[in-house]
Design a protein around this nucleic acid. Sequence first.
DNA 1: CCTATCATGTAATCCGTTACATGATTAT
DNA 2: ATAATCATGTAACGGATTACATGATAGG
Lengths: 199, 199
Amino acid sequence: MSTERLTPTSYLVLGLLAREGPSTPYALERHVAATLGNFWSFPHTLLYSEPSRLEALELVTETRESDGRRRRTFAITSAGFDELTAWLERPARARTELRDLGLLQLFFMDLASEEAGTRLAREQRAIHQAKLAAYEADARIERRGGHPASGLRTVEHWRGATLPMGLLYEGAAVAFWQGVADKVVRPDPAIEPNGREPG
Amino acid sequence: MSTERLTPTSYLVLGLLAREGPSTPYALERHVAATLGNFWSFPHTLLYSEPSRLEALELVTETRESDGRRRRTFAITSAGFDELTAWLERPARARTELRDLGLLQLFFMDLASEEAGTRLAREQRAIHQAKLAAYEADARIERRGGHPASGLRTVEHWRGATLPMGLLYEGAAVAFWQGVADKVVRPDPAIEPNGREPG
DNA sequence: CCTATCATGTAATCCGTTACATGATTAT
DNA sequence: ATAATCATGTAACGGATTACATGATAGG
């Protein structure tokens, strides 16, 4: 009778527990930070509270150390696995939520100064360029078979499933903000040699 | 003394009131649905509750009809305008939140059947193709000077500020899911020329 | 040793979502 | 007239964020 509404976070936890085996919230956090967390933030407290909810629904079990740290370890139940696979068999139809503070600001930039637009465009371009570079580094590492001391299989999944989308998105974002910068910054179409940046 | 934390929704409301003048929540809703709502959902109730919060902070004022419908109309105050422009002058540094149920499912697709992967890829490709087509239609309408009976200036801003990003994103998404489909679906490389979607 | 950082957790708050409901307007 | 849709609003619930706090480990 676990016909309660499950959230994306629920499925994230179920999926990780199913694939990686019994885990502590901290392990979940590390895994998420290296993969999906790149573009979908899951604050660490969520990885503590969500498993508790799932336990109430008997989709996961909890065991806890009795000594000092009292670590909690969660494991998926067969009911949880069923719920997860049922969800995976039913393809999502929801549209993408693309929440970007920069875009929101840009949408209202006609209300602000010209310099504000310039600053925004440059800042955003830099942010997305950095992210793109990080993704490309991930992709390179993966192509070499992965660094033994690091993510291993984790990164494989990341790459196979979602890293390419990250690359595509950040590439598009860089192009977009470059375009904005080009239009906002009228003078000097040649990139100024004395490019200085505010902190 | 309105040093309370404002949310993105707060700035959305402030910005619309600043640019469009005094508005009812319904007017805000319509405006949002035609523009930012394309990739950032703001449920209509938010456009009722958020202005109320802002009124408590004296960033907007409320006037209300006394007759049958008792419509509420909100207007930005000068304090509100100051808050808005101050925000716009401080460029956002937050990273993009790209929340996509489809990507989440894909991330765990190794736990499901092959057909599930196929279904997901096709479904997502169709969704993004449809959105891309809609954006392209918007862009065409804009290029012709806009339809007099429709969005007018609104659409101009949409196009100038954020429609290009929508086009870029959806283009990337279509390419991505096409790639997923190509890898997941082995047999029958011939695909129907026009991907359509069910109502 | 001391301090910084990592690791681990709880609790309160509040925004956003969902559910519900009814007054107007248009179409048939 | 009646149904359907548009327009407008309130209230409750709960997940997500923020704030807080302390136990371990490593570095100097």
